[in-house]
């Protein structure tokens, strides 16, 4: 009986967390759509800061990771495929690996590591210092002013970073690993572009936007539900990271399964 009680309470806890994340996304989107003109100059400032921090400032680390991934994948392909006589598969495999799967995932992981932790700890600290109450008393809705710009800013940044990651991995990978080998840039690019269908672009865009929304929602809700002691801020941050990672891997698996198995695309 105790085991069932424990399992039940764990399941209820998980369900509550998932519901909190989706309601944060719903609140943010409705705040954006239906309260757009409320305090728009102040919320725009927060949104721009979020995009600058999450998107622009992440470019160096994203560039490095994308370049290294591009080199690894292309080196492996160049070492395996010619022996099997399958050079024409190069574009397909690059698109499958980089655009469909690893690009959105790694960009999201970088966003979680850099910005998710910052959002959770910042909002947790603000909550403990009663800054959220102070905002509310000043007639400033904390969801509209603090949560919505962070969630939307994270989604925009993750989307842009994913696109940038994929371009750098594909182009940079060739320049560093493929240049000088027995494959020209023209053949390489036509192989990649030939493999890139509309569905690959849709999947990549869908994943990156959903990842961004979910990371923003998980991290802001972890910060906002932080307890009343300063020692609970690191716990909220850890919870945000673990929750975001779990969420993006589950969503990735769901989208991949839906598009490439159930829909047979």
């Amino acid at each position: 009986m105790d085991i069932f009680t424990s399992l039940g309470s764990i399941a209820i806890g998980r369900a509550k967390s998932i519901s909190a994340v989706w309601s944060t996304i719903a609140l943010s989107l409705s705040s954006l759509l239906f309260r757009f003109y409320v305090g728009r100059k102040a919320t725009l400032q927060v949104l721009l800061k979020q995009v600058y921090f999450t998107g622009f400032q992440a470019i160096p680390i994203i560039s490095w990771i994308a370049l290294i991934l591009g080199i690894i994948v292309l080196t492996q392909l160049l070492s395996i495929l010619p022996g099997l006589g399958g050079e024409r598969l190069m574009g397909d495999i690059l698109v499958w690996v980089v655009v469909r799967e690893v690009g959105p995932l790694l960009a999201a992981v970088v966003v979680i590591a850099r910005s998710g932790t910052a959002m959770a700890s910042e909002l947790g600290t603000m909550r403990i210092a009663k800054q959220l109450t102070a905002l509310e008393i000043m007639g400033i809705d904390p969801v509209h002013y603090l949560v919505m710009p962070r969630v939307i800013g994270t989604a925009i940044s993750t989307f842009v970073l994913t696109f940038y990651f994929e371009v750098v991995a594909i182009l940079g990978g060739y320049l560093l690993a493929g240049f000088g080998k027995n494959i020209t840039f023209g053949i390489y690019m036509s192989s990649v572009l030939g493999a890139m269908g509309l569905i690959e672009i849709i999947v990549s865009v869908l994943k990156s936007l959903l990842f961004g929304l979910v990371i923003g929602a998980v991290c802001t809700s972890s910060g906002l539900t932080c307890g009343n002691s300063i020692t609970e801020v690191p716990q909220a941050t850890t919870k945000a990271v673990i929750g975001s990672l779990a969420a993006i891997f589950v969503i990735d698996a769901l989208i991949t399964t839906l598009f490439f198995i159930h829909l047979g695309l």
């Binding site: 910042e122 600290t125 603000m126 210092a129 009663k130 800054q131 109450t133 102070a134 905002l135 008393i137």
Partner: peptide, 12 residues
């Protein structure tokens, strides 16, 4: 206009 006990200001 509210003046709070601990002079609460938005820290960021």
């Amino acid at each position: 206009g509210f003046l709070f006990h601990d002079a609460v200001l938005v820290s960021n």
